[in-house]
Design a protein around this nucleic acid. Sequence first.
RNA 1: UCCGCGAUAGCUCAAUGGUGGAGCAUUCGGCUGUUAACCGAAGGGUUGCAGGUUCGAGUCCUGCUCGCGGAGCCA
Length: 432
Amino acid sequence: MKSDINIKKLKEFAGQSVTLNGWVYNKRSGGKVRFIILRDGTGLLQCVLFKGNVSEDVFERFNLLNQESSVQVTGNVKVEERAPGGVELDVTDFSIIGNSENYPITPKEHGIEFLIDHRHLWIRSKRQMAILRIRHRIVKAIRDFFDERDFTLFDPPIITPNACEGTSTLFETEYFDLGKAYLTQSGQLYAEAGALALGKVYTFGPTFRAEKSKTRRHLTEFWMVEPEMAFYDLNDDMDLAEEFLEYIVQTVLKDMQTELAALERDVTKLQKVRRPFPRISYTDAVEILRKKGVDFEWGNDFGAADETLISEDYDQPVLVHRYPSEVKAFYMKRDPDNPKVALAVDVLAPEGYGEIIGGSQREDDYDLLLKRIKEHDLPVEFFDWYLDLRKYGSVPHAGFGLGLERTVSWICGLEHLREAIPFPRMIYRNTP
RNA sequence: UCCGCGAUAGCUCAAUGGUGGAGCAUUCGGCUGUUAACCGAAGGGUUGCAGGUUCGAGUCCUGCUCGCGGAGCCA
């Protein structure tokens, strides 16, 4: 049944007879010539039936095909300028494997609600296939990047006893006799333990936020990669983030040209993502906002519109560092030169895509960390193990988190995060 | 949680308070190179729900439900 030949590598088989498995993406017909656009997951292929070249039986069988019928097609591979992709299949025979009556997603426009309701079928469309393939390539680039730099993949727990950063609203569940437990909002605290064991680690998995966010930049379930490195300070952390982003973007540009073209992505914007990236302090960013006429008070966090204003003058991602410690998490180390700011960095993507990375150097002093935990009214007993990391061979260390869907969204040029993940989870939707 | 917008055929949309239409999809017919093919025909409707105003409501008013966009929070 299986075929080792697919549409992506069909050019290598020019002049040969091959058998392909797939689905009918679309069909068209003339009087004596009929076309099947075949989809097999690796690409689209125009298959041609000439009356006379095939038996009457096969020619008439064409009428039984519908959009998304599954088929096995045999024919000769022909180089053909008129066909999209440069090759087409001159069909000699085909059989229908599964029917598909009244396929809901027609080759016309649909509203977003309808498409999301049919997400399980929507992912068969050209655009969605391109996005999901780029997502896969980004995931592979992320893993390659860290694996090649002596990082160890370190999987943190998903069920946790406490709110990691004490800020977000979390998904809650009953955990046997131990009371309430929560779905993780970040693997970072555990990654710190990993970094002090293995030197350099990264976590990569789903995280959950029960915030009632209702914007194109939020999902309740999303994937995050979080490297954490012992003996790294904030500058080392920013250097790594820069190199990391450049690597991801340039890898996708090199390997995913077909998919980027299918999305009509302006790749000249991505080509400019080369180091060094601009680095500005939070205080500088506030000045930029004020010069642009925003009445912004030092000490507040940036909103989405502010982020766009800060990043719009640059082609590369912008690293904004040293935020007021009040708006940042308890575990971030304060700047010894200015205790009002934390050694934190956010990376703002170009083209208004906003924050894709948030990171910091961590507080490595036992007493200061304990003080912060108390100041934030966090339950100290849950942080005993975390404080231990500062008790037994504490070192300066740093890390950051990259939101996978936001990165996919930026690189693909998407309007909304919901297209960047196979089955998006949002405040008013947990199906299909 | 707050602000704004919307719900009409399977889908995308139109319809001055006065007989609810079009394109796509579906079915049938035509065409030897189509590129969201094209041409012709047919079938397809409790206008989100409940109430109100009116001789008459898809259209105006009130309430509700659901959805979309944005804010806040954040990746």
